[in-house]
Every structure is written in C-alpha cells, then in structure tokens.
Design a protein around this nucleic acid. Structure first.
Lengths: 109, 109
DNA sequence: ACCACTATTCAGTGTTACTATCTACCGGTA
DNA sequence: TACCGGTAGATAGTAACACTGAATAGTGGT
C-alpha cells in the first residue's frame, strides 16, 4: 500500500490488533486474515507475529495453546486487564491525534 | 505525552507538518510553536527540523532564506506541487486508516 | 560582559514494520 | 511412498522515523 502506510502503521498496528483481540480471542494466522479482509492487504504475516510476541512480553495478553485440526497447534491470545488498559490509552492517544488531523484536513479546503 | 504518541507520530508527523505548510509558508521554529499551541507539547524541536530536512531532500518544498529581526536568519519552507501531491496521498492513506480504526472503536462498545 | 530569546544543526539511541526465509503439521493425490 | 498446498508460527537483518541532548549562532536589553 505504499511507504506512507508502512510508517503510519507504526504505532497504530498495535492498537489495531488489540482492538481485534478486544472483540474476541484469536490466533495469529486468524488475525492476519481478518486484517486482510478489512483492506490491509499488504501487512506481512511476520509482522503480526512480532506484534503478538511484544504483547506477550509486555504482559498485555494471556496465551493458550490449542491443537488444530488442520496444521500445527494454534496460540490463542486473549486480552487481559492490562491489555484493556493499554487499549484504552491507545484510544485516547488516537482520538487526540485524529481530532487534530481532522481539523487540519477540513481547514485545508 | 507517552510512548504511544511517539510511535503514532511516525508517519503522521510528516503529514501534520505538510498540512501546516499547505495553509501557508513557515519556518522551523514557527512550525514547532504552532504544533505546541495545538497541544503537541512534547514534540522535540530537533524532530521538526529533521522532518524539514527530509522534505527538502525529497524535493517536496521550496526553501528561502529570510533575515530575521530577532536572531539568526530563518529558512522559510513552502509546499511545491510535488509536496502537494505527497500531501494528497497522505490524506488518502490517513482517511483509510482513520475509517478502519473508527469502525473498530465504535464496534468495541 | 552577560543573559534571554530566537533559530538551526547533528550524533547517537530505541522502537517499529518489512523482507525473506525457515520450521512444522496435516490431508490429499500420483 | 513421495510430494504438494494450505495452515501455523518463528527469526535474522534492514530501513525509516521520532527522541535525547547538546552544540552553534545571531539579536537586543540590562
């Protein structure tokens, strides 16, 4: 999708994935697929896994290994209270930025 | 403002500054001051200058040195057609992301 | 002579997403 | 058996970006 999207995803991809997990627990492959469905066709698989590893290291998610009928076992991630708090903070930050940019976008025409 | 804002600014700070320049030409110190007025109190001065250098290297702006009554000469930056095009692309990218995140934010409550 | 304000530059650091590749498990087919 | 496509995850190396912290420099006022 271009270099601008790549840079813009830094800082928002985390929130994107957290928001998906907030709706319901999921595993990496599934999250990638859902992002692709929503139009983020260029997000690399490896990138999503890296995000999930970071979440685990920061203690924002709980992990459970679940055997799969097709393929190797899945690592199912679910948001814990710390993750929910982190997500709340993300929304506050994003709202602030979104508001300012929205004003600039309107004012510029 | 926190680490989340720092990361979220990657990719959006460029657009922020471009949008400011689209409204009218400006120099670095002035841009920093305007950002601070708008609530971006934690954006480092050095960061803004780095953005402007990148713009110059990419050929998105025209530069003019103007003597100042107070202090050293100013480098006044103005958006050129390439910069305007880059800004248009930024808005398209941001709109896409903003729409998706907006949906997730609404759906999550 | 000193200080506060204005104005720009730069080296070094940490975080992040991408690329590319590798491992591994399963079912179906030749 | 041997192979392949789809599912699932891990990892080393790279590029881009914002921040920290400091340095440099010009002007006016005390």
């Amino acid at each position: 999708m271009g270099k601008q999207m790549t840079e813009m995803l830094k800082g928002t991809l985390e929130g994107l994935v957290l928001a998906i997990l907030a709706a319901r627990s999921a595993y990496g492959y599934e999250i990638t697929a859902r992002l692709r469905e929503q139009g983020f066709t260029d997000i690399a698989e490896g990138t999503v896994y890296a995000v999930l590893v970071r979440f685990e290291q920061k203690g924002l998610v709980d992990v459970e290994k679940v055997p799969s009928e097709k393929g190797p076992p899945r690592k199912v991630y679910s948001l814990n209270p710390a993750g929910q708090q982190y997500l709340d903070e993300f929304w506050r930050t994003w709202s602030f930025l979104s508001e300012r940019l929205g004003q600039l976008h309107e004012g510029g025409r």
